[in-house]
């Protein structure tokens, strides 16, 4: 059964990869490709929360912090050292370091889940205010001013490694989509490993896991760091896509939106959060174009309706329907 699911995951990802990487770039306009790049970056971010929350039981409002820190780190390193590849690695490294420090205090401090949510929320608020207040030109790292609420503009795109040639819009799209697919495959694999299965058991019942001999704190810290690495990378890719990063990434609206993606798409799956992110981003972009209703208001209403109609999320609901349709062929899992 597990092997079957694993094959379905791999084959599904391959098919999606062929379509998204092999066909889409030739079939749609560069403008649309840029939009799709954004969706893919957000899908990566969504999977990072889908992983730590759905499989590690860690409800963090802080994924946007790691995302933002990743974006800012990419901008600062890329502009200072003129090396986008180094900047991408730095973004991941800084996010992971932050997660290890924060996670240590949270998990070793034996804080309850509620406190974890409150603390991560507070930290994103602190970052929001801090970054907003750094508008004076004295706030700079190396040659790069933090820029306060204006943020950091002119972020360079990624280059072909070993050369000076920047990636085109289409190439950037292909890269980000590929990363998204790899993150999906990687996390699907991780969940099935010994580590992943123990992590899931800790989510189910931390005390029982400890009584069986597992140090729950270590597993949660590791999961938190993996989630932060992915979120930080998503932030860097977002900075590449937009060429600009500003404190809005630390805003409460954004951090709440990530949670909505995951819940709408389906907690306890990986594809659900990714799908939730893409659908809601599409909606936000469309609402921005038609300008009839405030996007946050629309999201709020959508969220309430979704929770009432499909409380388990879209993907688990679909899996349930499929399972019934195929006579309970497979028990639904990621």
């Amino acid at each position: 059964m597990r092997a079957l699911q694993s094959h379905v995951t791999t084959i599904g990802t391959l098919v999606a990869g062929i379509v998204l990487v092999g066909i889409v770039p030739f079939a749609v306009a560069p403008f649309t490709l840029a939009d799709l790049t954004l969706y893919a970056a957000m899908a990566i971010l969504a999977m990072s929360l889908g992983f730590i929350w759905g499989f590690g039981g860690i409800l963090s409002f802080g994924q946007s912090v790691f995302f933002g820190v990743g974006g800012y780190t990419y901008a600062i390193v890329a502009l200072n050292f003129d090396s986008p590849s180094l900047a991408l690695l730095a973004a991941i490294a800084v996010a992971v370091t932050g997660a290890l420090l924060l996670g240590y205090f949270i998990f070793w401090g034996r804080l309850s889940d509620v406190y974890l949510a409150v603390i991560t929320l507070t930290i994103s608020l602190i970052f929001f205010m801090l970054m907003n207040s750094m508008s004076s030109s004295i706030y700079r790292i190396g040659d790069v001013p933090i820029g306060g609420y204006n943020g950091i503009p002119g972020i360079p795109p990624l280059v072909v490694p070993g050369t000076d040639r920047s990636l085109s819009v289409a190439e950037t799209y292909v890269l980000v989509v590929t990363v998204a697919l790899l993150v999906y495959l990687g996390l699907s694999w991780l969940i099935r490993t010994k580590f992943g299965r123990i992590l899931c058991s800790i989510k189910e019942n931390e005390v029982r896991a400890e009584l069986l001999g597992y140090d729950a704190r270590l597993y949660k810290l590791a999961a938190f760091a993996v989630g932060a690495a992915i979120a930080g990378m998503a932030g860097a890719l977002f900075a590449v896509y937009s060429g600009l990063i500003n404190p809005d990434v630390f805003g409460i609206g954004f951090s709440a939106q990530i949670i909505v993606w995951v819940m709408l798409g389906g907690l306890g799956t990986l594809i659900g959060p990714a799908l939730g992110a893409v659908l809601i981003q599409m909606l936000v972009v469309w609402l921005g174009k038609v300008q009839v209703i405030d996007a946050n208001m629309a999201l709020g209403v959508l969220f309430i309706v979704a929770v009432l109609l499909v409380p388990a999320g879209l993907v688990p609901r679909l899996q349930g329907l499929l399972a019934v349709a195929f006579g309970n062929l497979a028990r639904s899992r990621p």
């Binding site: 010994k194 189910e204 019942n205 029982r208 009584l211």
Partner: peptide
């Protein structure tokens, strides 16, 4: 004290995996 969301087999396997 159990893993309510796992199957019996999964629970026992996780325990043995230590």
């Amino acid at each position: 004290s159990l893993f309510d969301g796992l199957t019996v087999r999964e629970s026992v396997e996780v325990a043995a995996m230590r």
